[in-house]
């Protein structure tokens, strides 16, 4: 266990956790907003992927990383709005439409990259650059803490800031109040004059923008190029973090951090004699157990209330 402990306790590892967790935190907060507004956003994956691709391409061709980041985030929001149109106006099932949009993002990104650069793998021959990392002049001199906090990417700081901002938005603003009302009981919300679809559209736009920021971090923060399919299922994991975090900003943040920690651990242990795949599987096993436990507790609570428990048809299939 000696070398493992050395790795886990090193400051480099703690810094890596923050980096690896960034896309999970951003995307999961996005998933949270949509879920609380009553639209399960399974298109997080697609938003991330299209944002990662758009960001790198725009940055590469325009020469400005900030233009790339803005366009990437806008692309993520656009895909989520498309989900809104399909689900809210065209009667599409949110889950199936989300899967369709994820496919669309996968196809469209690699088609575009191939059409523009003639390379199926990604944009590595395009010099798109990365968003800057933030150095903290005084803090970086503090032993231990400095090495962890200083030198993190702008978007990592954005992810850390996004958690309280999303919490404030949800619980302290009029919009957040409407959002939760719409998600909990759309008919009731409508009856008191809340424009249900408008609120859901805004929630989806924010959700897609946050997922977009997560995607931009992948192609312009962690590395400085886009790789086809580089999200590698992170959007789905973020969705799991939404549920594992019990639909609350703080819980979602911790859950996303947990997934990030396990992934960072798997990477760091890769060169030691520990099966990294099994280490990285731990959070998923844990999520499964937590899912079963919460469901069991809810079922027991509803039984004591003598309320009819939903047996068939997931809530997500009933359109609001």
């Amino acid at each position: 266990m000696g070398p493992v402990l050395d790795v886990v306790l090193s400051t480099g590892f703690l810094a890596a956790i923050l980096g690896v967790s960034t896309p999970y935190v951003l995307a999961a907060l996005g998933g949270l907003l949509a879920e609380r507004a009553g639209v399960p956003n399974i298109a997080l994956e697609g938003s991330m992927l299209s944002a990662a691709c758009t960001g790198a391409l725009v940055a590469g061709y325009s020469g400005s990383v900030w233009a790339g980041a803005v366009c990437g985030i806008a692309a993520g929001a656009l895909l989520a709005l498309l989900l809104g149109v399909l689900h809210l106006y065209l009667g599409a099932d949110a889950i199936i439409a989300g899967i369709g949009l994820n496919l669309l993002a996968a196809g469209a990104t690699s088609y575009t990259v191939f059409a523009l650069l003639g390379d199926k793998g990604g944009t590595s021959r395009l010099h798109s650059g990365a968003l800057p990392s933030v150095r903290l002049p005084l803090i970086e001199d503090i032993p231990g803490v400095g090495a962890v906090l200083s030198g993190q990417n702008v978007l990592t700081w954005a992810a850390l800031a996004a958690t309280p901002v999303v919490a404030w938005l949800l619980y302290r603003t009029r919009f957040g109040f409407h959002l939760r009302a719409v998600g909990e009981h759309p008919e009731a919300a409508r009856s008191v004059g809340i424009h249900v679809h408008r609120v859901q559209f805004r929630a989806l736009a924010l959700s897609g923008a946050l997922a977009g920021a997560a995607g931009v971090f992948l192609s312009m923060g962690a590395v400085s190029f886009f790789v086809t399919g580089m999200t590698a299922g992170r959007g789905y994991i973020a969705l799991a973090a939404v549920f594992l975090g019990a639909l609350r900003p703080c819980g979602v943040f911790l859950a996303a951090l947990g997934f990030g920690t396990a992934e960072a651990l798997a990477v760091q242990l890769g060169n030691l004699d520990v099966p990294s795949q099994l280490v990285s599987a731990i959070p998923y096993v844990f999520t499964l157990l937590a899912l079963a436990f919460f469901a069991w507790r809810r079922r027991r609570a509803s039984r004591t209330d003598a309320a009819p428990a939903p047996l068939a048809g997931p809530a997500v299939l009933e359109s609001p």
């Binding site: 799991a240 795949q277 099994l278 990285s280 599987a281 998923y284 499964l288 899912l291 079963a292 469901a295």
Partner: peptide
């Protein structure tokens, strides 16, 4: 069983199970 007996969300459950099985397969 998780869905039918406990009411657990089957979408999340199946996605998590995929992630676990793919990693175990790789290992």
């Amino acid at each position: 069983v998780m869905k039918a007996r406990l009411g657990a969300n089957e979408i999340v459950a199946t996605l998590m199970l995929n992630a676990v099985v793919v990693r175990v397969f790789d290992y």
